[in-house]
Design a protein around this nucleic acid. Structure first.
Lengths: 115, 115
DNA sequence: TCCTTATATGAATAATTGCTCATATATTAA
DNA sequence: TTAATATATGAGCAATTATTCATATAAGGA
């Protein structure tokens, strides 16, 4: 028995596939990226920002959420480099950082609509 | 004060954006889709299956995980229609359901590698 | 200065979730 | 039939997480 899985049929194949796997930390980062998109509130924020640059209170209004909840989520989105912020007076305007965010959203949307 | 957010500057904009938002249930489904990709173990499974059709034990070996953990995650992936299963004898072979899964994975990977 | 508005944030809570462990089912071999 | 192998699954647990609440900070207006 060659591999730890105990599956005799595919042991050679399994070793080959294992050797071709991306590094764990890369796969972890990819999962972390998707995790950001995997929350209703954050997806709503992303979609709203796809339509327009918006301030925190407007985002709260648009998403039927509270200012606090949105602010917490915006911090997460900012840390993930998905949105950027611009402060004018006491108002902070948020917008999507780049088109990659929109691209990812659209592919996800397509996938859902095809099911 | 027109909108519940109390933000006078953007109240008209906010109402306009809100009217253009996708339905909550659509956005929820999109988030749910991304959520599936947002776990290290599942991403490892998806990447491994991108390389080859594999049985449960091989997947456990390749991902350094247990048979039980992988089986649980495969059930989630199957329910989400991301993988399909084919039983031959006592071995169950899993593979990706379609190229959309690969496409989503690749866009996520690109995004991570650009950061 | 005092008040209001806009945003941020720490703590607490409730809900979700991924894993482990034990066990069940199914198939094949002896 | 009995044993071994491959997979599935329910219960319990630990960790994560999204929200709420209270409060802090910051800016503008009276």
């Amino acid at each position: 028995m060659e591999c730890s899985c105990g599956c005799l049929i595919n042991s050679e194949l399994a070793k080959k596939v294992k050797s071709k796997m991306l590094k764990d930390d890369i796969l972890f980062e990819i999962a972390e990226c998707f995790k950001i998109f995997g929350d209703s509130t954050r997806i709503k924020i992303i979609y709203a920002l796809k339509l327009s640059e918006l301030c925190v209170n407007d985002l709260a209004f648009i998403t039927n959420s509270t200012q606090s909840a949105i602010s917490h989520q915006l911090r997460i989105l900012k840390q993930a480099k998905l949105v950027k912020a611009k402060k004018i007076g006491k108002v902070v305007y948020y917008s999507l950082k780049d088109n990659h965010v929109i691209k990812l959203f659209e592919i996800g949307r397509e996938h859902v609509e095809e099911l």
